[in-house]
């Protein structure tokens, strides 16, 4: 598989996972939240500073349909992460020949 094609497939998988599969994720509390509930320190949790963010809780504000809102938020997150991460790594990279054999 060519590198370009491989990258495209990798991105497609991420978009499908975040955009479609995420709808079917378990809505049970995660390990830490569950322990915090059971042991009684969940009350210490403070409201998130960005709780009014347009992307708060993995939904896009203003989009009513839950599946669409969550899926859209996921795809936006994938795009943002790719942009920030890809940009950072592109700046950090050693220019020129691949480092494959080092």
């Amino acid at each position: 598989m060519s590198t370009k094609r491989f990258f495209a497939v990798f991105l497609l998988v991420a978009v499908v996972v975040a955009g479609l599969l995420s709808f079917y994720a378990s809505s049970h509390p995660d390990g830490l939240t569950k322990v915090a509930e059971d042991k009684g320190f969940i009350s210490q949790e403070k409201e998130h500073t960005l709780k009014d963010s347009p992307l708060s809780d993995y939904g896009v504000r203003g989009v009513g349909d839950e599946r669409l809102s969550g899926g859209l938020a996921g795809v936006i997150g994938v795009g943002l992460t790719l942009a920030v991460g890809g940009g950072l790594f592109w700046v950090l990279r050693r220019r020129g020949a691949p480092a494959g054999r080092r």
């Binding site: 994938v78 920030v84 790594f89």
Partner: peptide, 13 residues
């Protein structure tokens, strides 16, 4: 490098 930098961005995503 030129090849692993985009890969790393994709891994983060």
């Amino acid at each position: 490098d030129d090849r692993t930098a985009p890969l790393a961005g994709l891994v983060a995503a």
